[in-house]
C-alpha cells in the first residue's frame, strides 16, 4: 500500500496536523511501509466473525442523575491558554 503525497495531505487535514514539507515526505514513506505490514490481515477469514470493540462483558452502565459537588470554575479554567474574565477566549470561527 503506497500512499500518495495527496493522501498524506488529505489525512493531515482531517487530523488538523500542520505538517512541514519534510515531515510529509517522511510520513509518506513510513506510513506506506507500516501499511504494507498490515496487508497480512487479509489472510484471515473473518466474514462470520463479529468485531470486538472492548474486552469486558459490560454493556451500558447507568447511574442515578444526582447532583454532587464539582470543581470550581476557577480551577477548571486555570489551564486555559487565553482567558477573558470567566470565559475562554478563542479566535473567530466564522469570519
Amino acid at each position: 500500500m503506497k500512499l500518495s503525497r495527496e493522501e498524506v495531505e488529505h489525512i493531515s487535514l482531517l487530523a488538523r496536523l500542520g505538517l512541514a514539507e519534510a515531515e510529509k515526505e517522511r510520513l509518506r514513506e513510513q506510513l506506506s511501509n507500516i501499511l504494507e505490514n498490515m496487508e497480512l490481515l487479509k489472510e484471515t477469514a473473518t466474514d462470520d466473525v463479529p468485531p470486538t470493540t472492548q474486552s469486558i462483558a459490560l454493556q451500558n452502565v447507568f447511574r442515578e442523575d444526582v447532583a454532587r459537588p464539582s470543581l470550581g470554575s476557577e480551577e477548571v479554567m486555570a489551564n486555559a491558554p487565553q482567558r477573558e474574565e470567566s470565559s475562554i477566549r478563542v479566535r473567530p470561527v466564522l469570519e
Partner: peptide, 8 residues
C-alpha cells in the same frame, strides 16, 4: 477488519 481479528 482489525476488530474482527481481535475477536479471533
Amino acid at each position: 477488519k482489525a476488530q474482527k481479528v481481535r475477536t479471533l
